[in-house]
């Protein structure tokens, strides 16, 4: 029971990280039906930039700078890799171009920060504590809380502000929004900025647990794909539930079967969900008008 509760704790924490990244996929998918295949690299850059900054300043001051950096990086990805492909209606184009940028970012990071995994200072104490019989490390609590806060903030922004309304309008009908005078190109750029910002934030959150390095993004980005599909590419609740399912499935598989196999349930779940309910567990099936 003790082991199981610990597994649950760490499963929830890692699941929330997947959820935040998957949430980032949803933001860009909503506005442009595209995804950043280099999202993992956005997360990695956030963590490494944060690591370089945190030596010179307070942890809490570093956070907004990293988020700003993430937003700029996301806007660059959209302008270089996504916009030309949307114009030429080429799915192959944006998939390959975002992958290519991801490869470049990773290589640049290797040249700046090296190939090693670097320790990332934790802003909170390292001593575990117990809540309701579950052993947690304070950093895990911060990951869970931070991830939820981030998603909540973006949702509130979309629902309450006029810019958010433009975002929602573009997501529901790109052409109509354009005809209503909304600069849809700008909204798409903005969605990429938001998406990479959440990824960069997730990178800083997760780095004290996983260590920071050029390699850290690839696997996380991939898991978040699985979460986005399992939960549904258009469901906010879906990514949270999907993240929790995957996070817990992984930690329990790692403990009860073997660490080597911990990534396997993700793919199996992914294929099962697609076979049974292609829109995802919580996704809405959209009727495509002809």
């Amino acid at each position: 029971m003790d082991v199981l509760s610990q597994l649950l704790g760490s499963g929830v924490a890692v699941g929330m990280i997947y959820a935040v990244i998957a949430f980032g996929y949803q933001l860009t998918f909503a506005t442009s039906r595209t995804l950043n295949f280099g999202q993992g690299e956005a997360l990695m850059l956030g963590a490494l930039v944060g690591l370089s900054l945190v030596g010179h300043m307070n942890y809490w001051l570093m956070l907004p700078i990293v988020m700003l950096f993430g937003a700029v990086q996301g806007a660059v990805v959209e302008r270089v890799a996504v916009r030309p492909a949307i114009k030429s209606k080429s799915e192959f184009g944006w998939i390959m171009a975002t992958i290519a940028l991801g490869i470049i970012f990773k290589n640049v990071a290797e040249n700046i920060w090296g190939h090693d995994q670097l320790p990332f200072p934790s802003p909170v104490s390292q001593t575990p504590f117990t809540v309701l019989g579950v052993h947690m490390v304070p950093m895990q609590v911060m990951v869970i809380g931070g991830a939820l806060l981030m998603m909540l903030a973006v949702e509130l922004f979309n629902r309450r502000s006029i810019y958010g309304k433009a975002f929602v309008a573009t997501a529901s009908d790109l052409d109509a929004a354009g005809l209503m005078g909304i600069n849809t190109n700008l909204v798409i750029t903005f969605s990429y900025a938001l998406s990479s910002m959440t990824a960069a934030f997730a990178g800083v959150l997760v780095a004290p647990i996983t260590l920071a390095g050029a390699e850290m993004g690839a696997v996380l980005g991939l898991k978040a794909f699985a979460v986005a599909i399992i939960g549904g590419l258009n469901s906010g609740v879906g990514v949270i539930v999907g993240g929790l399912i995957l996070g817990i499935a992984e930690t329990t598989t790692a403990y009860y079967i073997s660490t080597g196999y911990k990534d396997v349930p993700g793919l199996v779940l992914l294929l099962l969900v697609l076979a049974v309910k292609p829109a995802g567990l919580f996704g809405k099936t959209v009727i495509k008008k002809v």
Partner: peptide, 10 residues
Amino acid sequence: RLTIFGLLIL
């Protein structure tokens, strides 16, 4: 190498 490779793809 990888940067050149990525640029080539773009």
